Each structure stands twice: as structure tokens, then as C-alpha cells.
Computed example of a mutant assay.
Amino acid sequence: MRQSPLRRLALAAFAATAFAAPAFAQDEQEPAGGDGGLDISATVTGVTDYRFRGVSSSDRDPAIQGSVDVNYHGFYIGAWASSIARTADTNVELDLYAGYAGSAGPVEYEVGAIAYLYPGGDGTGNIYEGTASLSYTLGPVTGKLSANYAPDQENLAGDNLYLNAELRSGIPTTPLTIFASVGRERGSFYGRKWDWSLGFEFSQGPFTASLAYVDTNLDSDTHFLGRNIRAGIVASAGFTF
């Protein structure tokens, strides 16, 4: 599903992987917390493969994505959309999200909720999920732990829990950042699985580009997702307005 504010920290890291599915997406861009005033931003991004938690939601084809976010004193609402492979009788995923981001000493936190919707579809793909994260920055390195939980609901055959750990480090005096992540999932989305990514991003002004290796421990020869869980290199490029 798309990249929600919870994944804003990983916007480039997961522009290819923060990514939705069965198309449950995006979790990339961290909302401004604290005492900031009203802020409105938008993004447009192209990816060579739309990945969500290591799984392709675009059938390993390119996708176009965009978002609009409104932040006010730590509270945020937003929408993120992506083209996808045919899911729930539509080729569009729309994620609506809201929450709060703040800090307690050196620790930044976020809590929120996401609705993964499929406009124009038959309604069988719509999923609702709660999110929470903690992050800590030391010098150029930021570590983040996050959890996404979808309770048992109409379009799920049981609940789903996803845990993720991320590390990002800027390279001093360069516009480059390296990143790595690992996730563990249990539930009705994909059963039990691990996923991981490793890559780098380039950021200059409003422009961001990334390149990442993405993989899971699922066997594409026996799993129903087939080639959409095979390892891949995912590139992305986008602008923030």
C-alpha cells in the first residue's frame, strides 16, 4: 500500500518496497511532529516495481505513485495512490491515513491508522490497519522500529502483524544515504515470512532517487504469489513539492 507518513522516513528506501498488497501498501515519508505549523506537501514518484513488504504489487512492472499530506502541530492526514496489477477488479490502490507524530527526548514516535482502498473495484481488497513506530538518531545514523497490525475483518481470514527494523545513514559531505531493513510478518496477508532490503538513495533539493535490492524468504516455485516474491533490484525517482 502505499507510502504513508509512517513510512516517510523510508520514502526513497521503500519507494520500491514500502510498498502495498495483496496490494497492501505503502510502509514511505515522515510527518513533521512537534510544534510546527500547517504544512502541505505532495510527491510524485516513478518506480520500476511497486513492492510492499518485499512483494510486488505491480506484477514486477513499473508504477506511478503520488501523495498529498497535511501536517499541523504533529497531527497529519494524507492520501497516497499507486498504479498496481489487477487487484480486487481495479488497477488503482489508494491509501488514506491519519495520525500523530511527536518526540519524547531523543526518541521520535508515531501512531496512526491506514485504510488500503481500491477505487472502482469490487470492494474485496479494502483493508484497515493500525501503525506505530519509534526512531532514534545518533549523528548521521537513524534507527527505526515499527509495527503494523490489521485486526480480523471482512476481507481478511484472521489478523495480521508486521514488524520492521530500519537503519539509515547519510554519507558525510555527499547527497547519498545508505539504508537497510528487515521485516517479519505473521498472519493473513502472506502467512509467515521475512523480507529485507538494502540500497542507497540520492537526494538533491526536491529530487530523490534510490536503488534497492529487495527479497523475501518465500519460495516463488511453490508459493501462490509466484514470481512476485522473487528477489529484485528496484529503482525509483521522484519529486517533493
Rank of each mutant, 00 (worst) to 15 (best):
S133H: 02
S146G: 12
S67C: 09
F19G: 08
D95C: 03
G105N: 10
F179C: 08
T131R: 01
T43V: 08
N91V: 10
E110M: 12
D219L: 09
R184C: 06
R7T: 13
F202K: 02
G54S: 02
S133Y: 04
S210W: 04
A212C: 11
G238K: 00
L156K: 00
Q3L: 15
D221F: 10
D27E: 15
Q153C: 00
G66S: 02
S41H: 14
E166W: 11
F19T: 07
T177M: 07
L156M: 07
L163E: 05
T240R: 11
A85D: 12
G130T: 01
L134C: 08
Y162Q: 06
A81H: 08
G187P: 01
L161D: 00
S220Y: 13
A212F: 09
K144G: 02
S133I: 02
R227G: 10
S188P: 09
V55A: 02
G205F: 04
R60A: 05
Y97M: 08
Y97K: 10
E129W: 00
E110Q: 14
G46A: 11
G102D: 07
V214N: 04
G66N: 01
A21Y: 04
E108T: 06
G187Y: 00
A132F: 02
Y118I: 01
Q204G: 10
A16Q: 10
D215N: 15
P140I: 12
I233V: 14
A209M: 12
V214M: 06
I178Q: 06
L176N: 11
G120P: 01
Y50W: 12
L38K: 11
G120W: 00
F52M: 07
S4Y: 04
Y116F: 05
G226P: 05
P175L: 11
L218Q: 14
A12I: 02
G191V: 03
S169F: 11
D59F: 05
V92L: 12
G183T: 05
E93P: 03
L117I: 14
Q26D: 13
P31Q: 12
G78A: 01
F200C: 10
P31R: 11
L9R: 06
Q29I: 15
G37Q: 10
N91Q: 15
F14M: 14
A79Q: 09
A32T: 15
T222C: 06
E110N: 11
F239M: 07
A85H: 06
S188A: 15
G232Y: 03
F241W: 09
V111W: 01
E185T: 04
L156S: 01
L38W: 13
G54K: 02
S181P: 06
V68S: 03
D59N: 14
R186T: 04
D152V: 00
A88G: 01
D195Y: 08
L6S: 12
I40V: 15
S197M: 13
G37W: 09
A235C: 06
D219P: 12
D95A: 13
V214T: 05
V55D: 00
F207G: 04
E30L: 15
F224S: 15
R168D: 10
R51F: 05
D59R: 12
G226H: 09
Y97W: 08
G121Y: 00
A147G: 10
D215K: 14
V111G: 01
E201D: 12
A12T: 07
S146N: 06
P175D: 09
F202G: 03
S67A: 15
A104W: 15
Y76L: 05
S82Y: 02
S133R: 04
P140F: 13
G105T: 07
T177W: 02
